[in-house]
Design a protein around this nucleic acid. Sequence first.
RNA 1: GGAGAGGUGUCUGAGUGGUUGAAAGAGCCGGUCUCGAAAACCGGUGUACUCGAAAGGGUAUCCAGGGUUCGAAUCCCUGCCUCUCCGCCA
Length: 427
Amino acid sequence: MLDIKFIREHPDLVKEGIRKKGDVDRIDEVLLLDKKRREVIQKTEALKNQRNVVSEEIAKIKKSGQDAIQAISEMNKVKDEIKSLDNELRKIEEEFNNLLLTIPNVPHPSVPEGHKPEDNQAIFSWGKLHPEYIGVNETDFEPKPHWELAEKLDIIDFGTGVKVTGAGFPFYKNRGAKLQRALINFFLDEAHGKGYIEIQPPLMINTASATGTGQLPDKEDLMYVVNRDELYLVPTAEVPLTNLHRDEILSEKDLPVKYCAYTPCFRREAGSYGKNVRGLNRLHQFDKVELVKFVHPGTSYNELEGLRSDAEALLQKLNLPYRVLLMCTGDMGFTQSKKYDLEVWAIGQKCWLEVSSISNFESFQARRINVRFRLAGGKPEFVHTLNGSGLALPRIVAAIIENYQTPEGKVIVPKVLHKYTGFEVIG
RNA sequence: GGAGAGGUGUCUGAGUGGUUGAAAGAGCCGGUCUCGAAAACCGGUGUACUCGAAAGGGUAUCCAGGGUUCGAAUCCCUGCCUCUCCGCCA
């Protein structure tokens, strides 16, 4: 969430940001409630002060052996007033906090304004023209989409997934399963090499954690819920990783703190349909290695570029053609101030697949989860948080299958994975 | 799941209704001493909200939420968590 003080002092700037994101502007409501809230606070605190002073007097009177009936009956009235004001305040604060949680983060000035996919800027691409690119050349033969190849090679079984669980829960088999495991290990090892601490987080999260990273209160529909225990299946490792330091004060010299984690991710994806859910393109359960950073506010945009290049390096090592999109204001999430998407080219489908989303949240999440650091000799201040996928597995698998297919329907394994897979070709 | 014990500041740990934001010690910061360091000694050392231009006030905070009381870290209820024992289990 945003700092109420910041909103109070820069209402126009915040409104402008909301407008750019295409969200509903409720800033005037926030400010009105804030005013009401502070008025009630002042009233109750004055009464509480009176109560404290008189109570102390009563103590003295009683000690001296005298009667304090007069003062006590007076305080009985004050007590009731305090109670009713406290109730009023509680209601106002609840409303105020809920409203504040729905105010989106303000976009960074460098983010292009727009609301359509075309407004996202492709700022970099890497691929076929690169001398190291060794993938398929579509002039040689007509490349197939990954689901056809995968079924034929018996490495992914979509039908059995439907039987056992439902659509979007495939079985990986044989060298397909091994390829998954190889990619996870490759990604984790690379992250470790870049100084990310490896974590195996819980796969279920509670309400507070989901609220902290912004999945709640609005986006409950995207998660699977375990009602009986009030838990959610992780939609991304971002949630447990970012909440790892909830309510903590980090020490300045420890920043930046960098974590990586592999987890399955569970998403309901309600409302998805059509060809962009075919095969591995959109699943309810998928594997992902996630990167999260807690950083000094002054460095967060540098750290964002660092995160981006860490993720890009993986694609380059896998020799997969990709492009980098700087996402426009309207395509950015609720919590982000700047976001890049990495999209890999899937030659069989002839489309771009998003494999990583790299964001700076500035202090937006940190304020929700209350993660601060202490300035040398000074007051605690909120850190900035960032995250990025490094990377999401299924679409990488799809891209490998499609871009490394041979005319005979085999798939060549990218060189960097050989030591993890133990084989160099599938089929 | 059953039975018991317990949750106090950065940490250890006192405190069972009235100057308790909270003893004491450790840690940390500053100072004295020292060529320098250690030791010793002296001083300082939570957070949030709120009023205020500031200085400086005020309120809250001893796991969380309710309750009793003029007044609660202290009494009562509920929840969460930790520990011990039993059961179950990979």
